[in-house]
Amino acid sequence: MEPILQGKNLVKRYGKVTALDHCDFELYPGEILAVIGDNGAGKSSLIKAVSGAVIPDSGEVYLEGKRVQFTSPLDARDHGIATVYQQLALSPALSIADNLFMGRELRRPGWRGKYLRQLDKPAMEKFARDKLSELGLMTIQNINQAVETLSGGQRQGVAVARAAAFGSKVIILDEPTAALGVKESRKVLELIQDVKSRGIPIVLISHNMPHVFEVADRIHIHRLGKRLTVIKPDEYSMSDAVAFMTGAKEPAQAA
């Protein structure tokens, strides 16, 4: 089977620090791929390189077998790759609805949208409310609330809702449950399964081993800027995975 999203020989250096050292990456259609690794192993750099947020120094990225060169996240998004970044990328002073539609606003039908370029706020608010209820983020009282008035978990919920609503080919989640409570984490995991059942593959970056082992089909273990190995969660235990990722144990064969 052909990978839907693939990185080959990716290199990214920041000054003297090599964040990605000839790294490979494959995501197959319909799967959930978890990416785990120690802090500073280069997980976020890998994700940014395949989602257009950073431009790799060398190496190639392929989407559905075709070579792509993303120059901005907008570029990647137009190709159907939606990403939730660790820092969430929300604008604190703007409302939930404004944030959800940032960069892809809906205009009013008719002359007011065409000539006055007026936004269709009622439609945007309704859509935002529906998406948040799907995620179980009912505790948000007002969709016009500024994002800065939300709790950390609620903000994360908004960011995840945005990716789930608009990602058409690949959804990348960088630490989606890090700031969430038990119930909200469960909702996000359910959402991940739900997105998978719609046939959209997901890349999940997480430090939470139980979550990773629960939802992932394959686990990409990242160490020292490259892919160490790829394991299946039912063939290895969590402690094996942690041992690989910290270098306490070497994988049996190269992936």
Partner: peptide, 13 residues
């Protein structure tokens, strides 16, 4: 004005 980096990542040019 709020956060240029966040704006860029969420698709604002």
């Amino acid at each position: 004005g709020d956060d240029p980096e966040a704006a860029e990542l969420s698709g604002v040019q």
